[in-house]
Simulated scan of single mutants.
Amino acid sequence: MASHRQYMMTVASRLSRAEPLLQWEVLEYMLDVDMHMWSLRRSMANFDRIMSLLSGVSTIGKWMDGIRNWKNLVTTVLVHILFLILVYYPELIPPTILLYVFVVGVMNYQHRPRHPPYMDVKLSHADFANPDELVEEFDGFPTTKGTNIVRMR
C-alpha cells in the first residue's frame, strides 16, 4: 500500500516539468502532507463547506414543503403538470434534468468568481483567522512555543 508521501512524490515529479516550477512547500501544503496536525481555521473552513452543501438540500426540502402545502399556487400547479408529463412520458426525464442543469448554470453565470481560482480567501477562512490561530497552525510538531502558550491554546 502506497503512503501519502509516495503519492506526493509522484505528483511532485509530474509537476516538476510544469511551468512555473512549484516548490516542495507548496506541494506539501496543497496535498496536506501534515494531516495529523489539527487547525482551527481549516476546521471552520471545512464546516462551512459542509454547511453550504447541506444548505442546498435544505432549500430543496423547503421548496418541496411549499409545493406540498400550496404556498405558491402557480409553482405548485406547474410542478404537478411537470410531474404528470414525466409520468406519462418517462423518456423526457433525462432531457428535463439536463435542461434544468443548463438553466441553473446560466442563472449562476453572473455569480462566477472574478478572482483567480487558486486563491479563494473566503473558502480558506484566511481573512477571518486571527494571528494566534495562524501561529498555532504553522507551528511545527513538536511545538517550539512555551508551555504557557500551549496551555492557553
Results as ranks from 00 to 15, higher is better:
64 M>Y: 10
78 L>A: 13
113 P>E: 13
82 L>F: 10
85 I>H: 05
87 V>N: 02
78 L>E: 14
124 S>E: 08
63 W>G: 01
37 M>G: 02
67 I>E: 01
14 R>Q: 15
120 D>A: 10
76 T>K: 07
71 K>M: 04
47 F>V: 13
14 R>A: 10
7 Y>Q: 03
42 R>H: 07
25 E>Y: 04
67 I>Q: 02
99 L>R: 12
10 T>S: 11
10 T>I: 08
28 E>W: 04
36 H>Y: 09
118 Y>Q: 08
99 L>H: 03
76 T>Y: 01
117 P>M: 06
30 M>T: 08
23 Q>N: 14
104 V>D: 03
21 L>K: 13
50 I>P: 04
6 Q>C: 01
9 M>Q: 06
32 D>I: 03
29 Y>Q: 09
32 D>R: 06
10 T>H: 08
102 F>C: 13
90 P>V: 13
86 L>D: 09
11 V>P: 00
118 Y>A: 06
116 P>L: 06
54 L>C: 09
45 A>E: 03
81 I>P: 02
57 V>N: 11
80 H>G: 01
31 L>Q: 08
93 I>L: 12
63 W>E: 10
122 K>P: 01
119 M>T: 05
103 V>W: 08
114 R>L: 14
79 V>R: 00
104 V>I: 14
94 P>W: 01
87 V>E: 03
75 T>Q: 15
104 V>T: 10
54 L>F: 00
23 Q>L: 06
48 D>Y: 10
35 M>A: 12
73 L>C: 12
18 A>R: 11
102 F>N: 02
110 Q>L: 08
44 M>C: 06
26 V>R: 06
88 Y>Q: 05
62 K>W: 13
44 M>W: 00
58 S>R: 10
98 L>M: 12
17 R>Y: 14
97 I>P: 00
69 N>Y: 02
6 Q>E: 15
83 F>E: 11
56 G>W: 14
45 A>K: 04
55 S>R: 09
18 A>F: 01
42 R>T: 09
87 V>K: 05
40 L>C: 08
116 P>H: 12
77 V>F: 00
121 V>E: 12
16 S>Y: 13
92 L>V: 13
49 R>Q: 11
114 R>G: 11
82 L>W: 02
62 K>P: 00
37 M>Y: 01
37 M>L: 05
91 E>W: 04
12 A>Q: 07
4 H>K: 15
68 R>Q: 15
82 L>C: 12
28 E>S: 11
10 T>Q: 09
70 W>R: 11
93 I>E: 11
57 V>T: 14
109 Y>N: 09
76 T>P: 03
68 R>Y: 09
59 T>G: 15
12 A>D: 05
69 N>D: 12
123 L>Q: 15
118 Y>K: 05
